[in-house]
Simulated assay, not measured.
Amino acid sequence: MDKIIPNEVWVEEIDLLLKNHYDEDLSLEELGQRLHGSSSYLRHIYKKIKGLTPQQELTRIRLEQARIRLLKGNEAISEIARDVGMMNTPYFIKSFKKRYGLAPNQYCKAYNINSKK
């Protein structure tokens, strides 16, 4: 029998899973299966406690990891997008620009990094 844990502890477990597995396909259903809860309840509790959905947090983590890799300047943008779990490069570029105010290639130029498309 599974023991009941406080929602705050559950959210910490969700955060840990997102941080350690951001490069994987983590749908709400997958999170629910891995963390022994329904996907809709998981989303509700997470948003109630954190103020954003697990998907929004996952995207934030992925974009931050991509930003760090872009600063190294030696990888193609499509490769970085794929490696952080965002298989759709145009969506990755749009999301990156929305978060950081610059498209990935513009970000590289702004920080004098050799960028690749």
Rank of each mutant, 00 (worst) to 15 (best):
E64Q: 15
I49C: 08
L16E: 14
D23N: 13
E57R: 15
L26A: 04
G37K: 12
R82N: 10
I61L: 11
E29V: 00
T89G: 07
Y100S: 02
E79N: 12
I77V: 13
V84Y: 04
R82P: 01
G73Y: 10
I68T: 07
I68V: 10
E13R: 15
A110M: 06
H21K: 13
P104E: 09
L42Y: 05
E24L: 09
E75W: 11
Q106D: 15
R62I: 00
A81T: 01
N74L: 01
D25T: 04
N74P: 01
D2F: 11
F96M: 04
S39P: 12
E57F: 10
E57D: 08
I61A: 06
I93D: 09
T59F: 04
Q55D: 11
A76F: 14
P54S: 08
R60P: 02
N114D: 13
Y46M: 05
Q33V: 00
A81R: 06
L16Q: 14
P104V: 00
R69S: 10
E64V: 00
I4F: 11
L26E: 04
T89H: 08
D15I: 02
L102Y: 14
R34C: 01
L35A: 03
L63F: 10
Y22I: 00
K50N: 07
E12L: 10
T89C: 07
E24G: 01
G51N: 05
D83Q: 13
S115Y: 15
L52F: 13
F92R: 09
A81V: 02
Y22S: 05
Y100R: 04
P104K: 01
N20Y: 03
E29I: 00
Y111Q: 10
D25M: 06
S27G: 09
A103N: 06
R34E: 02
E79L: 03
V84G: 10
A110V: 00
L70G: 02
K94V: 01
N74A: 02
E12P: 04
T89K: 14
Q106Y: 08
N112C: 07
S40N: 14
V9G: 02
D15K: 15
R99V: 01
K94G: 02
L17F: 12
K97G: 08
L17E: 07
L42N: 02
E29L: 05
H21E: 13
Y111H: 15
T89M: 13
R82L: 11
D2S: 09
N7R: 12
Q33H: 12
I77Y: 08
I14Y: 02
N20L: 11
I5G: 06
Q55V: 03
D15G: 03
N105S: 15
K117M: 03
R62D: 03
H36P: 01
E57K: 15
N114R: 12
Y111L: 05
I5W: 07
I14T: 12
N112T: 01
N112M: 05
S115Q: 10
D15F: 04
H21V: 00
I113G: 03
S38L: 07
I80M: 07
V84T: 04
T89L: 08
G51W: 06
K19R: 14
Y41S: 13
Y111E: 08
A110H: 13
K98G: 02
L28T: 03
I14M: 11
N105K: 14
I77C: 06
E64T: 00
K72P: 04
R60D: 14
K19W: 09
W10V: 00
S115A: 13
K117T: 03
D23W: 10
G32H: 01
Y46E: 02
K98W: 10
V84D: 08
P104H: 07
Y100P: 05
Y107F: 15
